[in-house]
């Protein structure tokens, strides 16, 4: 009789130990993530500065859709999302499946070089790309010397080229990062599957679409959600590459929210409302992607 009761107390003790171990981490997340999120929600229904803040209903939420700059920043962010994320994931998949080839030589070297951009900080690579694409930068020098351009083109002060430079920079920085996920995923696929497909006469393209893509689906879904989440929060590139310009043509939502909170006359209530829209967008897009990813074909 005494044995089970002793075990009970031991279990209870272990149960309590578990709570003690996870408490610091869990409480920090609670106070650093969920509490501020709740406060931001309350803040989004207020207007004014500091102690003089007063309730204003949903005014902040109706205001943002009449705010031309914010609408522009939503369009820009979605432009980056729709063009850059699919391109990057496709490139990363192709690179990973080439590097997964057993007969390939210098595999490690190629992997390291393609992965290398991840070693740079976001500010650093944004500044490098800003310099490369400057009026007196090396890209213009090259294009003029090759005779493609008569005179330097101002990439960073023209609407579309500024946006495209941001996309090029993002592709450069993040393709290798996603490739590493796919390489890790490919390790779990038996290589003999590919060899068998080859013997059966499947081409490289066929095995890519019939083996690699379906088997990597969970990884593709994960990278798609992560990239979507990251793109909706783009900040460093918009600030340091184009400074949101020209005339807010390349500004991202986070950049505008930052300006609204800390650069212009602070309007925390309005900024909080806009940040809540990002939260909702992240949740909706992740949900949609999971729905699409779940479908059996």
């Amino acid at each position: 009789m005494s044995k089970p009761s002793k075990k009970m107390t031991l279990n209870k003790k272990h149960n309590l130990t578990g709570w003690v171990f996870l408490a610091p981490g869990a409480l920090l997340i609670f106070f650093m993530s969920f509490v501020p999120m709740g406060k931001a929600l309350l803040l989004s229904f207020k207007t004014g500065v500091g102690a003089a803040m007063k309730s204003c209903g949903i005014m902040n939420y109706t205001r943002m859709f009449q705010d031309a700059v914010f609408v522009q920043s939503i369009k820009n962010t979605f432009f980056y999302l729709i063009i850059q994320v699919p391109l990057m994931l496709i490139f990363a998949l192709i690179l990973a499946s080439i590097l997964n080839n057993r007969q390939l030589r210098f595999k490690g070297l190629f992997r390291t070089m393609i992965f290398l951009p991840c070693a740079t900080s976001l500010v650093a690579y944004a500044v490098i790309f800003r310099s490369l694409f400057a009026n007196n930068g090396i890209i213009n020098l090259l294009l003029v010397n090759l005779g493609i351009l008569d005179q330097p083109y101002s990439f960073l002060t023209n609407t579309w080229s500024a946006r495209i430079v941001i996309i090029i920079a993002l592709l450069w920085r993040w393709t290798g990062y996603n490739m590493v996920f796919y390489l890790a995923g490919l390790q779990n696929i038996e290589y003999s599957v590919y060899e068998a497909a080859k013997i059966d006469g499947a081409s490289a393209v066929q095995s890519f679409f019939k083996i690699t893509v379906p088997l990597l689906k969970p990884t593709i879904l994960l990278t798609a959600i992560m990239s979507t989440n990251g793109t909706l929060q783009l900040f460093d590139e918009s600030v340091n590459l184009t400074d949101g310009g020209p005339a807010n043509a390349s500004i991202t939502m986070s950049h505008y929210i930052y300006n609204m909170s800390f650069k212009y006359v602070p309007n925390f209530g309005y900024a909080a409302a806009m940040s809540f829209l990002i939260l909702v967008l992240v949740a909706i897009l992740a949900f949609l992607q999971m729905k699409v990813g779940d479908k059996r074909d």
Binding site: M32, P36, M37, A40, L43, S254, F268, A283
Partner: peptide
């Protein structure tokens, strides 16, 4: 899933 901008302002205030 919580984007950092959504917690940034209250964190700054706190």
């Amino acid at each position: 899933m919580v984007p950092f901008v959504a917690t940034m302002i209250p964190l700054f205030q706190m």
